[in-house]
């Protein structure tokens, strides 16, 4: 039986498939001439090159020893790939805090070493951290809670108020120190 390097064969196959998809995509575009290149000219050229490379890679994979692909963390991969999708679906609807919590909670279980206790702790800590840093400090224009959670916003504001005051006090103190230093060095 002939040996096939499955890894190279798969890579070649993927490149051919992508090239074909792009070539198909240029069907309804004007190709044009070398002088007046239409929107389809360069992509079709590139798709041709990619297809050619794919074919060469595929052909060269025959007769080469096969190699191990290695383990694939199926469950982890699925959870990791789902979490940004969940974030995209919920961010506008539920607000920043629930979306971040979902991302962390889902992805935390991607690791085989994770425990429920760890996941809960991580979710709480990271959600709080992200909300304070991104929404309060960096002014990300997304409400902390939205949709069904919107009534929670005033409570969060109330809970954050003393910390916010403390942070801004530290901030203005630092600015004062910097200004004093600049005055000292005459910069």
């Amino acid at each position: 039986m002939m040996q096939v390097n499955t890894r190279d064969a798969a890579a070649g196959g993927i490149f051919i498939a992508i090239a074909a998809a792009f070539a198909l995509g240029t069907m309804d575009l004007t190709i044009g001439t070398a002088l007046r290149m239409g929107p389809g000219y360069f992509p079709l050229l590139l798709a041709g090159v990619l297809g050619l490379l794919g074919v060469i890679i595929l052909l060269k994979s025959f007769g080469r020893p096969s190699v191990e692909i290695g383990t694939v963390p199926w469950r982890g991969a699925a959870l990791i790939l789902i979490s940004p999708i969940v974030f995209g679906l919920t961010i506008r609807w539920l607000g920043l805090a629930p979306s971040v919590a979902l991302v962390v909670a889902i992805s935390a279980f991607a690791s085989r070493r994770s425990t429920v206790k760890l996941a809960v702790a991580l979710t709480l800590a990271l959600t709080l951290f992200c909300v304070i840093v991104f929404q309060r400090w960096l002014g990300l224009p997304i409400p902390v809670f939205n949709g069904p959670f919107a009534p929670l916003n005033p409570y969060f504001d109330m809970a954050y108020a003393p910390f916010g005051a403390a942070f801004s006090a530290i901030g203005s103190a630092l600015a004062g120190v910097v200004a004093a230093l600049r005055g000292l060095f005459g910069a």
Binding site: I85, V100, V103, L122, F134
Partner: peptide, 23 residues
Amino acid sequence: FPAILAFCAIGVYSVNSNAFDLF
């Protein structure tokens, strides 16, 4: 890595406020 993922998600979303980018 959950932290990395959370930062990535927020970061990507904040560019265009666009759910499509997360997909």
